[in-house]
């Protein structure tokens, strides 16, 4: 994947707590993501992966630390400035999060129509094009999301995420709940669309097969911190016992399956 040295997204000392500060989820997270790079954040359930991505998207506000996109501090932006930033962002949610009340084509073209970027007629044409890119035929255009399988919903979610040719795409557990073949189809689609539109990609997953396929670089989140980050092919030689235990799925090791703090 194409990549240069400029940091597209930078997290510095990000801390996020809940329950009035009693529950620390992110504790001084530092992560730099280069332009055009595909970074996968791995970690067990409840380690703060989703909170990290929600902080980057502006859905949650960190207690402290900074998050910059193209050098702009997104934590302290007004709502309208944040909306402008979000125009260059696409997001594939874990369960696709398609709008039940709208047909498939309006789901895909929602951002384009909402921002008045094109007419409804043109938006429908773009929806056809994007659905084709994720392997769906125009037959699904007028169906409602509930008429599709979960794998097809994920594809529609992916088509929606790339509809406006975003510069950054976030993927939240893209293969969770899918059978191995469909998971591989989604992985291939993610690689394909990233290469096609040249976007910066941030994926959170605990599926190592997916992480290896999608990522240029992998970062592991544990106990609210990034404990290891490096190129994907270096993860098997990380010399980090936490990473080793996680990628091999062993029960023995320093990571204990205990209640979250």
């Amino acid at each position: 994947m194409s990549q240069d040295n400029a940091a597209k997204i930078n997290l510095s000392g990000v801390r996020k707590t809940f329950a009035g500060g009693k529950k620390v989820v992110l504790d001084h997270v530092d992560l730099e993501i280069g332009k055009g790079e595909s970074v996968v954040i791995i970690g067990g359930s409840g380690t703060g992966k989703s909170v990290t991505i929600k902080c980057m998207l502006g859905l949650l506000k960190p207690d402290s630390g900074s998050i910059t996109i193209d050098g702009k501090d997104v934590n302290n932006m007004s709502a309208s400035e944040r909306e402008d930033i979000n125009q260059q962002v696409g997001m594939l949610f874990q369960a696709a999060a398609l709008f039940d009340s709208l047909p498939i084509w309006e789901n895909v073209a929602f951002g384009l129509i909402a921002r008045n970027q094109c007419s409804r007629h043109d938006a429908r044409d773009i929806a056809v094009e994007k659905l084709k890119l994720v392997g769906l035929s125009p037959d699904v255009l007028d169906l409602s999301p509930s008429e599709l399988s979960s794998g097809m919903q994920k594809r529609v979610g992916l088509a929606r995420a790339i509809a406006s040719n975003p510069e950054i795409i976030f993927f939240d557990e893209p293969t969770t709940g899918l059978d191995p073949i469909m998971a591989d189809v989604i992985n291939n689609l993610i690689v394909h669309v990233n290469q096609t539109i040249g976007a910066t990609a941030v994926t959170i997953t605990h599926d190592m097969k997916s992480a290896r396929k999608i990522g240029d670089r992998i970062a592991m989140l544990y106990d609210g911190r990034i404990i290891w980050a490096g190129p994907t092919d270096a993860i098997d030689h990380s010399d980090n016992e936490y990473v080793d235990q996680f990628i091999h799925g062993r029960t023995e090791g320093p990571i204990k399956m205990v209640a979250r703090r």
Binding site: G90, M91, L98, F99, F110
Partner: peptide, 12 residues
């Protein structure tokens, strides 16, 4: 079902 969050990410 995160549809409200999806609206935000779609600049709405």
């Amino acid at each position: 079902t995160e549809q409200v969050d999806a609206l935000t990410t779609l600049s709405t």
